[in-house]
């Protein structure tokens, strides 16, 4: 029943492989399997307390801990970057409790845990993408009663979701929802894709990789199996559109990627750079240069001196 215990800190405390005990992992795997069997359906599960606060990805961490094996390679993304607090701590956590290989390269990873982004590089059938989800219920802001939202999912009553989009157009002239943009999965369940920018929604459609979603505080797991239809909701006369950026990445000159705005000074200076840091680095390594890339290289050498 018990997995191999792993000594940590000289035998003071013994953790099971990947922190969770085997019974918990079985419970979570059952929820994951049910989620895969019913694409987009939110499966309740007995979420455990994790050694990090809610909102830091406790749901994603539990899913990752339940599926990760000794020969997996883990990548953790926070807002597209591999080097921000959340990504660094979760990566360190799994290095410590599971002793798995970690990477920042999308292509090398077999399990990718993410907050806010889907990598720019297309995922493959040998990869699993694990999302950290704060609020799994797409209908929540319009219908506060859980009993009612469950009934609406059960009976496929999704008119309310369009009320939200209608309000957007009435107020802003276009659908102003830019993240957590609701999708219809496999022509059945309306799902919240977690707070990813709607730019990433088309990547979910017919994705080769398995996509798993974990919400720790809300105790829900849901999934999109590989090659599943994922359609962003819209109106006939206001079709779904992704964000467009007028300029390319300032460092790697990439177009058609999601860019972050970085404020450079207090005189209105700003630059747009790839949100996906790994993608940006790979492009620069391949010789692509944006208009600020040279300056940046100069700045770093100067700082080094």
């Amino acid at each position: 029943m018990t997995g191999q215990a792993q000594d940590i800190a000289g035998g003071m405390a013994a953790y099971n492989f990947a922190y969770l005990d085997e019974q918990t992992k079985r419970m979570i795997r059952r929820a994951i399997l049910k989620g895969i069997a019913i694409p987009g359906y939110q499966v309740p599960f007995a979420s455990r307390e994790m050694p990090m606060p809610y909102g830091w990805g406790t749901g994603g961490v539990q899913v990752t801990a339940s599926i990760i094996g000794r020969d997996d390679t883990l990548k953790v993304i926070d807002q597209g970057a591999d080097d921000t607090t959340n990504a660094v701590s979760i990566r360190a956590f799994f290095q410590k409790v599971a002793d798995v290989a970690v990477t920042t390269r999308t292509r090398e990873a077999s399990v990718i845990q993410t907050r806010h982004r889907i990598p720019e590089e297309p995922l493959t059938a040998s990869q699993v993408l694990v999302y950290q989800v704060p609020i799994p219920e797409p209908l929540r802001f319009l219908e506060p009663r859980e009993t009612e939202t469950r009934k609406m999912h059960a009976l496929e009553e999704y008119g309310l979701m369009h009320v939200k989009l209608y309000e957007d157009i009435a107020r802003h002239g276009h659908i102003a929802t830019t993240y957590a943009y609701p999708v219809l999965v496999d022509d059945r369940y309306v799902m919240d894709p977690s707070p990813t920018p709607k730019f990433d929604n088309p990547k979910m459609d017919m994705c080769e990789a398995l996509q798993l979603f974990g919400a720790g505080r809300e105790k829900r797991i849901y999934a999109i199996p590989p090659y599943t239809r994922v359609v962003s909701l819209d109106f006939e006369d206001h079709p779904f559109e992704v964000q467009r950026f007028e300029e390319p990445c300032a460092l790697c000159a990439a177009r058609d990627v999601y860019l972050d705005e970085v404020i450079l000074d207090d005189k209105g200076g700003r630059m747009f750079v790839c949100s996906d840091t790994d993608h940006c680095e790979e492009r620069r390594a391949a010789g692509h240069r944006g208009h600020l890339a040279a300056e940046e290289a100069y700045a770093t050498t100067e700082a080094a001196q």
Partner: peptide, 24 residues
């Protein structure tokens, strides 16, 4: 908390109308 137009349009959207201009 939603506009008068959306209040009236909700039932139309619930029965499957998906054309913003017509609903409005």
């Amino acid at each position: 908390s939603v506009s008068a137009g959306a209040n009236v349009g909700e039932r139309l959207m619930a029965v499957g109308q998906r054309h913003y201009g017509n609903i409005r």
